[in-house]
């Protein structure tokens, strides 16, 4: 019998082979069975004051401490202000900035360099922007990226088609470069969906939902991994605390349904 030729169209990764990008937040890594699968584009979503930016920054600082090049693209807030928030962290090492392990870039500077000044971007301009981010990631050998917030970028894309185009192309480019990315997304506390435009959540490889949970007048900060491609994970809700030693998480108590 002639030997069967194996299909060359695609090859499946061997069991358990997918590399993990440890967030450095112990309990979150345990929730994710070792960390975020490398190359995933993850939506970190929640309303204001839920700890999205702080958690994302910690992900980057730990990455930099592990020796990876990390990039924070700030869309709404100036980098100096964000840096001031990092300093109280006991594990933060200022030399990470000097050594180029932890890099901050303001998105308006990228817009300006590309000449993107219109209130609504065209498909060509989206390509320009995705390529520019990809070039920065490639040039600086970035392994971890945070865009805070992707909602502000999407605001300039206006239509669902353009948002889909942007997130798909960006996710593909970053994944091809082996870069694990967190896209910070802002939603209203009353929102039933995980992203402002409803498109981002469908395309992202993962969704980490952060929220404020009110129980008998107490306001608890919560975190829940809703979806994460490439790994099994807990989908339970956890309560978090933002401390000088980083984000701490404990299981949320149910109290027998009280």
């Amino acid at each position: 019998m002639p030997e069967q030729k194996q299909s060359k169209v695609f090859s499946l990764p061997k069991k358990g082979q997918r590399n993990r990008c440890k967030t450095g937040i112990d309990t979150l890594d345990a929730i994710l069975n070792g960390g975020i699968p490398r190359g995933n584009t993850v939506l970190v979503t929640g309303s204001c004051g839920t700890g999205k930016t702080t958690t994302s920054l910690e992900f980057l600082v730990h990455g930099a401490l592990y020796g990876e090049n990390c990039l924070f693209i700030s869309v709404t807030e100036a980098s100096e202000k964000l840096l001031a928030n990092l300093i109280p962290y006991e594990f933060f090492d200022e030399s990470l900035l000097k050594r180029g392990k932890l890099i901050f870039i303001d998105m308006p500077a990228i817009y300006e360099r590309l000449g993107l000044q219109k209130s609504e971007f065209s498909f060509e301009e989206i390509d320009l922007l995705v390529n520019a981010i990809g070039d920065i990631v490639k040039e600086l050998k970035i392994k971890r990226l945070v865009i805070d917030s992707v909602t502000s970028v999407c605001f300039q894309l206006k239509t669902e088609e353009k948002i889909r185009d942007f997130i798909l192309k960006l996710g593909k480019k970053l994944s091809d470069l082996g870069c694990t990315s967190l896209l910070v997304s802002e939603i209203l506390p009353s929102d039933a969906r995980y992203s402002t435009y409803g498109v981002e959540e469908a395309i992202a490889d993962g969704i980490i939902l952060m929220g404020n949970y009110e129980r008998r007048g107490d306001l608890l900060r919560t975190l829940q991994v809703v979806k994460m491609r490439g790994t099994t994970h807990s989908r339970a809700k956890y309560v978090l605390d933002l401390t000088p030693i980083g984000v701490l998480l404990v299981p949320m108590l149910k109290g027998g349904g009280d």
């Binding site: 008998r216 007048g217 608890l220 030693i245 701490l248 404990v250 299981p251």
Partner: peptide, 20 residues
């Protein structure tokens, strides 16, 4: 801890001290 009803926050403070 803001309130004795915030039992998760008690656990979080204990965890913080254990690490610190």
């Amino acid at each position: 801890v803001e309130s004795p009803t915030m039992l998760e926050n008690i656990m979080l403070k204990v965890e913080f001290l254990l690490r610190k």
